[in-house]
Write a protein that binds this DNA or RNA. Structure first.
Length: 572
RNA sequence: GGACAUGUAGCCAAGCCAGGAUAUGGCAUCAGCCUCCUAAGCUGAAUAUCUAGGGUUCGAAUCCCUACAUGUCCGCCA
Protein backbone atom coordinates (compact mmCIF):
# COMPACT_ATOMS: atom_id res chain seq x y z
CA UNK A 1 0.00 0.00 0.00
CA UNK A 2 1.30 3.42 -0.87
CA UNK A 3 1.43 5.94 1.92
CA UNK A 4 0.13 9.43 1.34
CA UNK A 5 2.99 11.69 0.32
CA UNK A 6 3.04 13.78 3.46
CA UNK A 7 3.54 10.70 5.62
CA UNK A 8 6.38 9.35 3.59
CA UNK A 9 9.82 10.14 4.88
CA UNK A 10 12.27 11.23 2.28
CA UNK A 11 15.29 10.17 4.26
CA UNK A 12 16.93 7.35 2.43
CA UNK A 13 15.03 8.06 -0.72
CA UNK A 14 17.20 6.55 -3.39
CA UNK A 15 15.18 6.34 -6.57
CA UNK A 16 18.09 5.45 -8.81
CA UNK A 17 18.97 2.47 -6.66
CA UNK A 18 15.35 1.32 -6.45
CA UNK A 19 14.84 1.46 -10.17
CA UNK A 20 18.17 -0.19 -10.85
CA UNK A 21 17.24 -3.01 -8.53
CA UNK A 22 13.82 -3.33 -10.08
CA UNK A 23 15.37 -3.50 -13.54
CA UNK A 24 17.83 -6.16 -12.45
CA UNK A 25 15.04 -8.21 -10.83
CA UNK A 26 12.98 -8.08 -13.99
CA UNK A 27 15.92 -9.20 -16.07
CA UNK A 28 16.68 -12.02 -13.67
CA UNK A 29 13.10 -13.26 -13.76
CA UNK A 30 12.98 -13.23 -17.52
CA UNK A 31 16.41 -14.66 -18.24
CA UNK A 32 16.83 -16.94 -15.26
CA UNK A 33 20.39 -15.68 -14.96
CA UNK A 34 21.98 -14.29 -11.83
CA UNK A 35 24.29 -11.82 -13.50
CA UNK A 36 22.23 -9.80 -15.93
CA UNK A 37 25.05 -7.54 -17.14
CA UNK A 38 23.65 -4.16 -16.27
CA UNK A 39 25.69 -1.14 -17.30
CA UNK A 40 25.11 2.53 -17.57
CA UNK A 41 23.01 3.33 -20.62
CA UNK A 42 25.11 6.37 -21.55
CA UNK A 43 23.30 8.56 -24.04
CA UNK A 44 20.96 5.75 -25.06
CA UNK A 45 19.20 5.08 -21.80
CA UNK A 46 19.31 5.23 -18.01
CA UNK A 47 20.47 1.63 -17.86
CA UNK A 48 21.41 -0.98 -20.41
CA UNK A 49 21.98 -4.70 -20.34
CA UNK A 50 24.24 -6.78 -22.56
CA UNK A 51 22.87 -10.04 -21.21
CA UNK A 52 21.76 -11.13 -24.68
CA UNK A 53 25.39 -11.73 -25.65
CA UNK A 54 25.74 -14.22 -22.84
CA UNK A 55 22.45 -15.90 -23.71
CA UNK A 56 23.37 -16.02 -27.38
CA UNK A 57 26.19 -18.33 -26.51
CA UNK A 58 24.04 -20.65 -24.43
CA UNK A 59 21.02 -20.69 -26.72
CA UNK A 60 23.04 -20.46 -29.92
CA UNK A 61 20.78 -17.73 -31.22
CA UNK A 62 21.27 -14.25 -32.59
CA UNK A 63 21.74 -11.84 -29.65
CA UNK A 64 19.56 -9.19 -31.28
CA UNK A 65 16.71 -11.66 -31.54
CA UNK A 66 17.15 -12.60 -27.87
CA UNK A 67 17.14 -8.94 -26.90
CA UNK A 68 13.84 -8.51 -28.70
CA UNK A 69 12.33 -11.46 -26.85
CA UNK A 70 13.52 -10.19 -23.48
CA UNK A 71 12.08 -6.75 -24.17
CA UNK A 72 8.71 -8.30 -25.04
CA UNK A 73 8.72 -10.48 -21.93
CA UNK A 74 9.61 -7.61 -19.60
CA UNK A 75 7.18 -5.15 -21.15
CA UNK A 76 4.37 -7.61 -20.52
CA UNK A 77 5.03 -7.57 -16.78
CA UNK A 78 3.04 -5.17 -14.63
CA UNK A 79 6.11 -4.53 -12.48
CA UNK A 80 7.75 -2.91 -15.48
CA UNK A 81 5.36 0.02 -15.27
CA UNK A 82 7.27 3.26 -15.30
CA UNK A 83 10.26 1.79 -17.11
CA UNK A 84 10.45 2.00 -20.87
CA UNK A 85 12.22 -1.05 -22.26
CA UNK A 86 13.52 -1.27 -25.78
CA UNK A 87 16.06 -3.17 -27.80
CA UNK A 88 18.62 -1.65 -30.06
CA UNK A 89 20.38 -4.49 -31.75
CA UNK A 90 21.64 -6.75 -28.98
CA UNK A 91 21.41 -4.03 -26.35
CA UNK A 92 18.44 -3.82 -24.03
CA UNK A 93 17.77 -0.24 -22.97
CA UNK A 94 15.84 0.95 -19.96
CA UNK A 95 14.52 4.46 -19.66
CA UNK A 96 12.94 5.50 -16.40
CA UNK A 97 9.68 7.35 -16.79
CA UNK A 98 7.92 10.42 -15.45
CA UNK A 99 7.18 9.01 -12.00
CA UNK A 100 10.85 8.33 -11.47
CA UNK A 101 11.76 11.86 -12.49
CA UNK A 102 9.02 13.45 -10.41
CA UNK A 103 9.77 11.42 -7.29
CA UNK A 104 13.48 12.09 -7.65
CA UNK A 105 13.11 15.83 -8.02
CA UNK A 106 10.66 15.92 -5.12
CA UNK A 107 13.10 14.04 -2.91
CA UNK A 108 15.96 16.29 -3.99
CA UNK A 109 14.25 19.32 -2.50
CA UNK A 110 14.25 17.83 0.97
CA UNK A 111 16.76 19.38 3.40
CA UNK A 112 18.17 15.92 4.11
CA UNK A 113 18.49 14.84 0.48
CA UNK A 114 21.21 12.26 0.07
CA UNK A 115 21.19 11.40 3.74
CA UNK A 116 20.89 7.63 3.94
CA UNK A 117 18.97 5.70 6.61
CA UNK A 118 20.67 5.70 10.02
CA UNK A 119 23.12 2.90 10.68
CA UNK A 120 24.23 1.50 13.98
CA UNK A 121 27.77 0.50 13.03
CA UNK A 122 30.16 3.05 14.40
CA UNK A 123 32.98 4.12 12.12
CA UNK A 124 36.34 5.47 13.26
CA UNK A 125 38.40 7.23 10.62
CA UNK A 126 41.99 8.18 11.31
CA UNK A 127 43.51 10.69 8.96
CA UNK A 128 46.30 13.25 8.59
CA UNK A 129 48.26 12.13 11.69
CA UNK A 130 51.34 13.94 10.43
CA UNK A 131 54.28 14.09 12.80
CA UNK A 132 54.17 17.26 14.88
CA UNK A 133 57.59 18.37 13.72
CA UNK A 134 56.40 21.12 11.43
CA UNK A 135 53.58 22.53 9.34
CA UNK A 136 51.31 20.44 7.17
CA UNK A 137 52.42 20.63 3.56
CA UNK A 138 50.57 19.94 0.33
CA UNK A 139 51.44 16.25 0.55
CA UNK A 140 49.93 15.90 4.03
CA UNK A 141 46.72 17.61 3.11
CA UNK A 142 45.93 15.07 0.44
CA UNK A 143 45.53 12.75 3.40
CA UNK A 144 43.50 15.38 5.23
CA UNK A 145 41.11 16.11 2.38
CA UNK A 146 40.55 12.45 1.50
CA UNK A 147 40.04 11.64 5.18
CA UNK A 148 37.74 14.53 5.98
CA UNK A 149 35.65 13.94 2.86
CA UNK A 150 35.25 10.31 3.90
CA UNK A 151 34.24 11.40 7.40
CA UNK A 152 31.59 13.67 5.92
CA UNK A 153 30.46 11.04 3.43
CA UNK A 154 30.03 8.43 6.16
CA UNK A 155 28.01 10.88 8.24
CA UNK A 156 25.86 11.62 5.20
CA UNK A 157 25.47 7.88 4.70
CA UNK A 158 23.95 7.61 8.16
CA UNK A 159 26.88 6.27 10.18
CA UNK A 160 28.01 7.58 13.54
CA UNK A 161 31.59 8.62 12.86
CA UNK A 162 34.55 9.62 14.98
CA UNK A 163 37.56 11.22 13.33
CA UNK A 164 40.95 10.82 14.93
CA UNK A 165 44.39 12.35 14.57
CA UNK A 166 47.06 10.02 15.90
CA UNK A 167 49.69 12.26 17.41
CA UNK A 168 53.24 10.98 17.49
CA UNK A 169 54.53 12.48 20.71
CA UNK A 170 57.55 10.31 21.43
CA UNK A 171 59.28 9.04 18.29
CA UNK A 172 62.74 9.78 17.05
CA UNK A 173 61.63 12.77 15.02
CA UNK A 174 60.00 14.25 18.08
CA UNK A 175 63.18 13.61 20.03
CA UNK A 176 64.99 15.72 17.43
CA UNK A 177 62.41 18.47 17.87
CA UNK A 178 62.75 18.24 21.65
CA UNK A 179 66.54 18.41 21.37
CA UNK A 180 66.16 21.54 19.27
CA UNK A 181 63.78 23.18 21.70
CA UNK A 182 66.08 22.32 24.58
CA UNK A 183 69.29 23.53 22.94
CA UNK A 184 68.51 26.20 20.36
CA UNK A 185 66.43 28.64 22.43
CA UNK A 186 64.77 30.31 19.48
CA UNK A 187 62.51 33.27 20.15
CA UNK A 188 59.00 33.32 18.80
CA UNK A 189 58.70 35.54 15.76
CA UNK A 190 55.64 37.77 16.14
CA UNK A 191 52.67 36.25 14.34
CA UNK A 192 54.45 32.92 13.89
CA UNK A 193 52.31 29.82 14.30
CA UNK A 194 53.36 27.00 16.60
CA UNK A 195 54.12 24.61 13.77
CA UNK A 196 56.31 27.20 12.05
CA UNK A 197 58.16 27.85 15.29
CA UNK A 198 58.77 24.14 15.86
CA UNK A 199 59.90 23.34 12.33
CA UNK A 200 62.76 25.83 12.59
CA UNK A 201 64.10 23.76 15.48
CA UNK A 202 63.57 20.53 13.60
CA UNK A 203 65.31 21.63 10.41
CA UNK A 204 68.22 23.19 12.31
CA UNK A 205 68.64 20.21 14.65
CA UNK A 206 68.79 17.90 11.63
CA UNK A 207 71.34 20.16 10.01
CA UNK A 208 73.50 20.18 13.13
CA UNK A 209 73.23 16.40 13.43
CA UNK A 210 74.39 16.01 9.87
CA UNK A 211 77.41 18.25 10.47
CA UNK A 212 78.20 16.80 13.88
CA UNK A 213 77.08 13.15 14.00
CA UNK A 214 78.52 12.95 17.51
CA UNK A 215 75.36 14.56 18.89
CA UNK A 216 73.14 11.73 17.63
CA UNK A 217 73.48 9.81 20.92
CA UNK A 218 71.80 12.77 22.61
CA UNK A 219 68.65 11.95 20.64
CA UNK A 220 68.89 8.35 21.84
CA UNK A 221 69.21 9.52 25.42
CA UNK A 222 66.07 11.62 25.05
CA UNK A 223 64.23 8.63 23.62
CA UNK A 224 65.28 6.42 26.49
CA UNK A 225 64.22 9.09 28.98
CA UNK A 226 60.79 9.58 27.40
CA UNK A 227 60.32 5.82 27.34
CA UNK A 228 61.19 5.67 31.04
CA UNK A 229 58.88 8.55 31.85
CA UNK A 230 61.49 10.99 33.11
CA UNK A 231 59.29 13.95 34.21
CA UNK A 232 61.46 16.72 32.75
CA UNK A 233 61.71 14.95 29.38
CA UNK A 234 58.01 14.13 29.38
CA UNK A 235 57.26 17.82 29.84
CA UNK A 236 59.74 18.86 27.17
CA UNK A 237 58.26 16.46 24.61
CA UNK A 238 54.70 17.21 25.62
CA UNK A 239 55.06 20.96 25.35
CA UNK A 240 56.95 20.85 22.05
CA UNK A 241 54.30 18.60 20.54
CA UNK A 242 51.52 20.76 21.93
CA UNK A 243 52.93 23.91 20.38
CA UNK A 244 53.21 22.27 16.98
CA UNK A 245 49.84 20.52 17.17
CA UNK A 246 48.15 23.83 17.95
CA UNK A 247 49.53 25.25 14.74
CA UNK A 248 48.45 22.17 12.80
CA UNK A 249 44.95 22.47 14.25
CA UNK A 250 44.73 26.06 13.03
CA UNK A 251 45.69 24.95 9.53
CA UNK A 252 43.14 22.15 9.58
CA UNK A 253 40.39 24.45 10.85
CA UNK A 254 41.16 26.91 8.05
CA UNK A 255 40.31 24.12 5.61
CA UNK A 256 37.07 23.18 7.39
CA UNK A 257 38.63 20.13 9.02
CA UNK A 258 38.00 19.35 12.67
CA UNK A 259 39.12 16.12 14.30
CA UNK A 260 36.97 14.74 17.10
CA UNK A 261 40.06 13.69 18.98
CA UNK A 262 43.83 13.94 18.93
CA UNK A 263 45.17 10.72 20.41
CA UNK A 264 48.73 10.74 21.73
CA UNK A 265 50.99 7.76 21.21
CA UNK A 266 52.40 7.86 24.73
CA UNK A 267 49.02 6.78 26.11
CA UNK A 268 49.58 3.26 24.85
CA UNK A 269 53.00 3.10 26.39
CA UNK A 270 51.87 4.42 29.78
CA UNK A 271 48.67 2.38 30.15
CA UNK A 272 50.44 -0.90 29.46
CA UNK A 273 48.34 -1.76 26.43
CA UNK A 274 51.34 -1.77 24.14
CA UNK A 275 53.11 -4.26 26.38
CA UNK A 276 49.95 -6.34 26.47
CA UNK A 277 49.73 -6.64 22.72
CA UNK A 278 53.47 -7.28 22.45
CA UNK A 279 53.09 -10.14 24.94
CA UNK A 280 50.40 -11.67 22.78
CA UNK A 281 52.49 -11.25 19.65
CA UNK A 282 55.54 -12.74 21.38
CA UNK A 283 53.66 -16.04 21.56
CA UNK A 284 53.30 -16.24 17.78
CA UNK A 285 55.55 -18.77 16.06
CA UNK A 286 56.95 -16.07 13.79
CA UNK A 287 58.10 -13.93 16.73
CA UNK A 288 61.85 -13.75 17.23
CA UNK A 289 63.97 -12.27 19.98
CA UNK A 290 67.58 -11.11 19.88
CA UNK A 291 68.36 -9.77 23.32
CA UNK A 292 65.69 -7.20 24.10
CA UNK A 293 64.96 -6.78 20.42
CA UNK A 294 61.79 -8.39 19.11
CA UNK A 295 60.65 -8.74 15.56
CA UNK A 296 58.21 -10.72 13.47
CA UNK A 297 59.30 -12.79 10.52
CA UNK A 298 56.35 -12.39 8.17
CA UNK A 299 57.98 -14.02 5.16
CA UNK A 300 55.24 -16.65 5.10
CA UNK A 301 52.81 -13.78 4.58
CA UNK A 302 54.84 -12.32 1.75
CA UNK A 303 56.93 -9.74 3.61
CA UNK A 304 60.66 -9.96 3.12
CA UNK A 305 61.82 -7.60 5.87
CA UNK A 306 61.85 -7.89 9.65
CA UNK A 307 58.86 -6.28 11.35
CA UNK A 308 60.63 -4.83 14.36
CA UNK A 309 58.49 -4.23 17.43
CA UNK A 310 61.09 -3.52 20.10
CA UNK A 311 64.61 -2.13 19.81
CA UNK A 312 67.65 -3.83 21.25
CA UNK A 313 67.97 -1.02 23.77
CA UNK A 314 64.51 -1.94 25.00
CA UNK A 315 62.70 1.14 23.73
CA UNK A 316 59.47 0.74 21.82
CA UNK A 317 58.90 1.60 18.20
CA UNK A 318 56.03 3.27 16.43
CA UNK A 319 54.76 0.00 14.97
CA UNK A 320 54.22 -1.48 18.44
CA UNK A 321 52.35 1.54 19.76
CA UNK A 322 50.33 1.60 16.55
CA UNK A 323 49.17 -1.98 17.16
CA UNK A 324 47.91 -0.99 20.62
CA UNK A 325 46.27 2.09 19.15
CA UNK A 326 44.39 -0.07 16.65
CA UNK A 327 43.09 -2.38 19.37
CA UNK A 328 41.95 0.72 21.26
CA UNK A 329 40.15 1.92 18.15
CA UNK A 330 38.56 -1.50 17.57
CA UNK A 331 37.05 -1.26 21.01
CA UNK A 332 35.19 1.87 20.10
CA UNK A 333 33.96 1.08 16.60
CA UNK A 334 32.63 -1.49 14.21
CA UNK A 335 34.61 -0.25 11.27
CA UNK A 336 38.10 1.20 11.51
CA UNK A 337 39.51 3.11 8.56
CA UNK A 338 43.01 4.56 8.16
CA UNK A 339 44.04 7.01 5.48
CA UNK A 340 47.70 6.43 4.73
CA UNK A 341 50.21 7.70 2.18
CA UNK A 342 52.07 5.45 -0.21
CA UNK A 343 55.11 5.49 2.09
CA UNK A 344 53.04 3.67 4.73
CA UNK A 345 51.76 0.92 2.46
CA UNK A 346 54.19 -1.70 3.66
CA UNK A 347 53.88 -0.98 7.34
CA UNK A 348 50.12 -0.74 6.98
CA UNK A 349 49.94 -4.16 5.39
CA UNK A 350 52.21 -5.57 8.10
CA UNK A 351 49.98 -4.09 10.76
CA UNK A 352 46.90 -5.63 9.15
CA UNK A 353 48.61 -9.00 8.89
CA UNK A 354 49.82 -8.93 12.49
CA UNK A 355 46.38 -8.05 13.84
CA UNK A 356 44.90 -10.94 11.89
CA UNK A 357 47.53 -13.27 13.33
CA UNK A 358 46.39 -12.44 16.85
CA UNK A 359 42.73 -12.71 15.79
CA UNK A 360 41.98 -9.03 15.90
CA UNK A 361 40.12 -7.02 13.30
CA UNK A 362 42.52 -5.22 10.95
CA UNK A 363 41.71 -1.68 9.84
CA UNK A 364 40.57 -0.90 6.31
CA UNK A 365 43.30 1.18 4.73
CA UNK A 366 42.79 3.88 2.15
CA UNK A 367 46.15 4.40 0.47
CA UNK A 368 46.95 7.44 -1.58
CA UNK A 369 50.00 8.09 -3.75
CA UNK A 370 52.43 10.94 -3.29
CA UNK A 371 52.18 14.60 -4.13
CA UNK A 372 55.53 15.94 -5.25
CA UNK A 373 56.84 19.28 -6.42
CA UNK A 374 58.11 19.81 -9.98
CA UNK A 375 61.62 19.85 -8.49
CA UNK A 376 61.16 16.61 -6.56
CA UNK A 377 59.62 15.19 -3.43
CA UNK A 378 58.80 17.21 -0.36
CA UNK A 379 60.72 16.75 2.87
CA UNK A 380 60.05 18.40 6.20
CA UNK A 381 63.53 17.55 7.38
CA UNK A 382 65.18 19.24 4.42
CA UNK A 383 62.79 22.16 4.67
CA UNK A 384 61.63 21.52 1.08
CA UNK A 385 57.87 21.88 0.96
CA UNK A 386 54.94 24.15 0.20
CA UNK A 387 52.93 24.49 3.37
CA UNK A 388 49.17 24.13 3.38
CA UNK A 389 49.04 27.60 4.92
CA UNK A 390 51.01 29.09 2.03
CA UNK A 391 48.77 27.35 -0.47
CA UNK A 392 45.64 28.63 1.24
CA UNK A 393 47.05 32.15 1.59
CA UNK A 394 48.08 32.36 -2.06
CA UNK A 395 44.77 30.94 -3.23
CA UNK A 396 42.89 33.45 -1.08
CA UNK A 397 44.92 36.27 -2.54
CA UNK A 398 44.10 35.17 -6.08
CA UNK A 399 40.46 34.65 -5.21
CA UNK A 400 40.26 38.13 -3.72
CA UNK A 401 41.65 39.63 -6.94
CA UNK A 402 39.04 37.71 -8.89
CA UNK A 403 36.15 38.73 -6.65
CA UNK A 404 37.23 42.36 -6.67
CA UNK A 405 37.28 42.25 -10.45
CA UNK A 406 33.84 40.70 -10.74
CA UNK A 407 32.03 42.32 -7.83
CA UNK A 408 33.64 45.75 -7.33
CA UNK A 409 30.42 47.03 -5.77
CA UNK A 410 30.72 44.76 -2.73
CA UNK A 411 32.37 45.88 0.48
CA UNK A 412 35.74 44.47 1.51
CA UNK A 413 34.34 42.20 4.23
CA UNK A 414 31.83 40.68 1.84
CA UNK A 415 34.47 40.18 -0.84
CA UNK A 416 36.80 38.58 1.65
CA UNK A 417 34.09 36.20 2.77
CA UNK A 418 33.52 35.08 -0.79
CA UNK A 419 37.23 34.89 -1.57
CA UNK A 420 37.84 32.74 1.47
CA UNK A 421 35.09 30.26 0.58
CA UNK A 422 36.26 30.16 -3.02
CA UNK A 423 39.87 29.60 -2.00
CA UNK A 424 39.21 26.82 0.50
CA UNK A 425 36.86 25.20 -1.98
CA UNK A 426 39.43 25.45 -4.76
CA UNK A 427 42.12 23.86 -2.60
CA UNK A 428 39.93 21.03 -1.34
CA UNK A 429 38.42 20.30 -4.72
CA UNK A 430 41.73 20.39 -6.55
CA UNK A 431 42.96 17.63 -4.24
CA UNK A 432 39.86 15.49 -3.88
CA UNK A 433 39.05 15.36 -7.58
CA UNK A 434 42.01 13.13 -8.41
CA UNK A 435 41.65 9.47 -7.53
CA UNK A 436 43.87 8.42 -4.64
CA UNK A 437 45.96 5.88 -6.55
CA UNK A 438 47.41 8.52 -8.85
CA UNK A 439 50.62 10.19 -7.84
CA UNK A 440 50.52 13.86 -8.68
CA UNK A 441 52.84 16.81 -9.16
CA UNK A 442 51.70 19.95 -7.45
CA UNK A 443 50.94 22.66 -9.98
CA UNK A 444 50.26 26.26 -8.93
CA UNK A 445 48.55 27.02 -12.21
CA UNK A 446 46.02 24.27 -11.67
CA UNK A 447 45.54 24.99 -7.98
CA UNK A 448 44.74 28.61 -8.80
CA UNK A 449 42.46 27.85 -11.73
CA UNK A 450 38.91 28.86 -10.85
CA UNK A 451 37.30 27.65 -14.05
CA UNK A 452 35.54 24.51 -15.11
CA UNK A 453 36.88 21.52 -13.15
CA UNK A 454 37.13 23.48 -9.94
CA UNK A 455 35.13 24.27 -6.82
CA UNK A 456 34.39 27.88 -7.85
CA UNK A 457 32.75 26.57 -11.00
CA UNK A 458 30.45 24.42 -8.90
CA UNK A 459 29.89 27.13 -6.31
CA UNK A 460 29.01 29.45 -9.17
CA UNK A 461 26.32 27.07 -10.42
CA UNK A 462 24.90 27.01 -6.90
CA UNK A 463 24.94 30.81 -6.66
CA UNK A 464 23.17 31.04 -10.02
CA UNK A 465 20.45 28.71 -8.82
CA UNK A 466 20.05 30.78 -5.66
CA UNK A 467 19.86 33.94 -7.70
CA UNK A 468 17.07 32.57 -9.90
CA UNK A 469 15.08 31.41 -6.89
CA UNK A 470 15.53 34.76 -5.19
CA UNK A 471 14.22 36.57 -8.24
CA UNK A 472 11.30 34.15 -8.51
CA UNK A 473 10.42 34.88 -4.91
CA UNK A 474 10.48 38.60 -5.60
CA UNK A 475 8.19 38.01 -8.56
CA UNK A 476 5.64 36.29 -6.37
CA UNK A 477 6.94 32.74 -6.07
CA UNK A 478 5.88 29.60 -7.89
CA UNK A 479 3.93 26.37 -7.47
CA UNK A 480 5.59 22.99 -7.09
CA UNK A 481 5.39 21.15 -10.36
CA UNK A 482 7.10 17.94 -11.40
CA UNK A 483 6.22 17.56 -15.06
CA UNK A 484 9.27 17.38 -17.28
CA UNK A 485 9.69 16.67 -20.96
CA UNK A 486 12.44 18.95 -22.21
CA UNK A 487 15.73 17.02 -22.71
CA UNK A 488 17.74 19.58 -20.70
CA UNK A 489 15.30 19.26 -17.81
CA UNK A 490 15.36 15.47 -17.95
CA UNK A 491 19.13 15.20 -18.15
CA UNK A 492 19.49 17.43 -15.10
CA UNK A 493 16.71 15.75 -13.13
CA UNK A 494 18.09 12.29 -13.79
CA UNK A 495 21.53 13.28 -12.66
CA UNK A 496 20.10 14.84 -9.52
CA UNK A 497 18.40 11.48 -8.87
CA UNK A 498 21.76 9.72 -8.60
CA UNK A 499 23.10 11.69 -5.64
CA UNK A 500 22.10 9.27 -2.83
CA UNK A 501 23.52 6.42 -4.88
CA UNK A 502 26.81 8.27 -5.23
CA UNK A 503 27.01 8.86 -1.47
CA UNK A 504 26.46 5.15 -0.98
CA UNK A 505 29.15 4.33 -3.49
CA UNK A 506 31.70 6.68 -1.93
CA UNK A 507 31.42 4.95 1.45
CA UNK A 508 31.28 1.43 0.09
CA UNK A 509 34.27 1.93 -2.20
CA UNK A 510 36.08 4.48 -0.04
CA UNK A 511 36.63 6.65 -3.10
CA UNK A 512 35.77 10.29 -2.38
CA UNK A 513 36.79 11.46 -5.85
CA UNK A 514 33.57 9.92 -7.19
CA UNK A 515 31.67 12.65 -5.44
CA UNK A 516 33.89 15.31 -6.99
CA UNK A 517 33.19 13.94 -10.47
CA UNK A 518 29.49 13.69 -9.70
CA UNK A 519 29.08 17.25 -8.54
CA UNK A 520 31.11 18.61 -11.43
CA UNK A 521 28.82 16.81 -13.88
CA UNK A 522 25.85 18.18 -11.98
CA UNK A 523 27.15 21.74 -12.36
CA UNK A 524 27.82 21.08 -16.07
CA UNK A 525 24.26 19.90 -16.61
CA UNK A 526 22.85 22.81 -14.67
CA UNK A 527 24.84 25.34 -16.68
CA UNK A 528 23.68 23.79 -19.96
CA UNK A 529 20.10 23.75 -18.70
CA UNK A 530 20.53 27.37 -17.64
CA UNK A 531 21.65 28.33 -21.11
CA UNK A 532 18.97 26.48 -23.10
CA UNK A 533 15.96 26.28 -20.84
CA UNK A 534 14.91 29.74 -19.67
CA UNK A 535 13.38 29.55 -16.23
CA UNK A 536 11.96 32.91 -15.20
CA UNK A 537 10.91 33.73 -18.71
CA UNK A 538 8.99 30.51 -19.13
CA UNK A 539 5.30 30.55 -18.41
CA UNK A 540 2.74 28.56 -16.48
CA UNK A 541 3.53 24.96 -15.62
CA UNK A 542 6.85 25.00 -17.47
CA UNK A 543 8.03 27.89 -15.33
CA UNK A 544 6.84 26.18 -12.17
CA UNK A 545 8.44 22.88 -13.13
CA UNK A 546 11.74 24.56 -14.00
CA UNK A 547 11.80 26.56 -10.78
CA UNK A 548 11.08 23.38 -8.85
CA UNK A 549 13.95 21.73 -10.69
CA UNK A 550 16.28 24.66 -10.00
CA UNK A 551 15.45 24.32 -6.32
CA UNK A 552 16.16 20.59 -6.42
CA UNK A 553 19.46 21.24 -8.16
CA UNK A 554 20.34 24.03 -5.74
CA UNK A 555 19.77 21.70 -2.81
CA UNK A 556 21.67 18.81 -4.38
CA UNK A 557 24.65 21.07 -5.07
CA UNK A 558 24.40 22.36 -1.51
CA UNK A 559 24.32 18.85 -0.04
CA UNK A 560 27.12 17.57 -2.24
CA UNK A 561 29.37 20.55 -1.55
CA UNK A 562 28.69 19.98 2.14
CA UNK A 563 30.01 16.45 1.89
CA UNK A 564 33.09 17.84 0.16
CA UNK A 565 33.57 20.34 2.98
CA UNK A 566 33.11 23.23 0.55
CA UNK A 567 30.91 26.20 1.34
CA UNK A 568 27.94 26.67 -0.99
CA UNK A 569 27.82 30.43 -1.61
CA UNK A 570 24.52 32.09 -2.36
CA UNK A 571 26.16 34.92 -4.20
CA UNK A 572 29.61 35.32 -5.72
C1' G B 1 67.30 -7.18 -6.77
C1' G B 2 62.03 -7.67 -4.62
C1' A B 3 56.99 -5.53 -3.45
C1' C B 4 53.01 -2.04 -4.44
C1' A B 5 50.92 1.80 -7.57
C1' U B 6 50.64 4.44 -12.08
C1' G B 7 51.20 4.87 -17.77
C1' U B 8 44.64 7.41 -21.78
C1' A B 9 45.56 13.89 -27.25
C1' G B 10 50.92 19.27 -26.41
C1' C B 11 49.50 19.21 -20.80
C1' C B 12 46.12 17.39 -16.53
C1' A B 13 42.47 13.97 -15.42
C1' A B 14 37.62 10.31 -15.76
C1' G B 15 36.48 5.47 -17.40
C1' C B 16 39.55 -0.08 -15.58
C1' C B 17 37.94 -3.60 -9.73
C1' A B 18 32.00 -5.83 -11.72
C1' G B 19 34.72 -6.49 -20.51
C1' G B 20 30.09 -4.55 -24.82
C1' A B 21 27.01 0.63 -28.62
C1' U B 22 31.34 6.46 -32.33
C1' A B 23 36.97 6.38 -25.37
C1' U B 24 34.63 11.20 -21.48
C1' G B 25 35.97 16.04 -19.50
C1' G B 26 39.24 20.12 -18.55
C1' C B 27 43.79 23.29 -19.71
C1' A B 28 46.27 25.29 -23.80
C1' U B 29 44.91 26.46 -29.44
C1' C B 30 41.26 28.26 -33.11
C1' A B 31 36.09 30.28 -34.32
C1' G B 32 31.63 32.23 -32.15
C1' C B 33 27.92 34.02 -27.95
C1' C B 34 26.75 39.44 -22.73
C1' U B 35 20.22 45.39 -25.12
C1' C B 36 19.00 37.81 -22.87
C1' C B 37 17.54 34.30 -15.23
C1' U B 38 25.41 36.28 -12.52
C1' A B 39 30.38 35.32 -19.08
C1' A B 40 33.93 31.93 -12.44
C1' G B 41 29.19 30.79 -18.02
C1' C B 42 27.61 28.65 -23.06
C1' U B 43 28.34 26.72 -28.34
C1' G B 44 31.43 24.87 -32.21
C1' A B 45 36.41 23.26 -34.39
C1' A B 46 40.96 20.72 -34.00
C1' U B 47 43.75 17.20 -31.31
C1' A B 48 44.21 9.75 -29.08
C1' U B 49 48.85 3.60 -32.27
C1' C B 50 44.17 4.12 -24.52
C1' U B 51 53.12 2.74 -22.99
C1' A B 52 54.77 -1.76 -26.10
C1' G B 53 54.19 -6.92 -27.36
C1' G B 54 51.59 -11.42 -26.66
C1' G B 55 47.08 -14.07 -24.73
C1' U B 56 41.67 -14.97 -23.23
C1' U B 57 36.84 -13.59 -25.62
C1' C B 58 31.68 -13.18 -30.41
C1' G B 59 33.79 -8.44 -28.24
C1' A B 60 39.55 -5.63 -24.46
C1' A B 61 41.33 1.12 -22.42
C1' U B 62 38.99 -2.50 -19.02
C1' C B 63 40.78 -9.43 -17.59
C1' C B 64 45.75 -12.55 -17.88
C1' C B 65 51.21 -12.83 -19.10
C1' U B 66 55.83 -10.37 -20.50
C1' A B 67 58.68 -6.01 -21.26
C1' C B 68 59.64 -0.83 -20.71
C1' A B 69 58.96 3.98 -18.12
C1' U B 70 57.67 6.82 -13.66
C1' G B 71 56.52 7.17 -8.29
C1' U B 72 56.73 4.87 -3.41
C1' C B 73 58.58 1.25 -0.09
C1' C B 74 62.02 -2.74 1.34
C1' G B 75 65.41 1.59 8.61
C1' C B 76 66.30 -1.31 15.73
C1' C B 77 62.53 6.27 11.39
C1' A B 78 57.55 7.47 11.50
Amino acid sequence: MELPRFFATLRGCNMYREYTQKTADLLREVTGLDDVMITDGGEHADLASTVSFALAKIQKKNPAKIAGEIVAAISAKPEAKGIEVSAKGPYINFIFGGDYVADSVRAARSPDYGTLPSRKEKVVIEHTSANPNGPLHVGHIRNTIIGDTLVRAFRKAGYPVESLYYLNDMGRQIAIVAWGVKNLHYDHIPGEKGDEYIVRHYVEANKIAKERPEIEPEFDVLMEKIEAGDPETVKLFHDSVEICADGIKETLASMNVIHDQFVRETIFLRDGSMQEVLDRIAKLPMAHHEGQMMYLDLSEEGFSNKYVLRRSNGTSVYAARDLAFHLWKNNRCDRSIDVLGADHKLIGAQLQTTLKLINERPPEIVNFEFVSLPEGSMTTRGGVFITADALVAETKKRAMEEVTLRRPELGETEREKIASAVAIGAVRYDIVKVSAEKSTVFDWKEALDFERQSAPYIQYAHARACSILLKAKAEGGYFECYEYSDPYELALAKHIAQFPYVVEKVVSELRPHLLASYVRDLADLFNTFYRFAPVLKAEGKVRDARLTLVDACRNTLFQALGVLGIEALESM
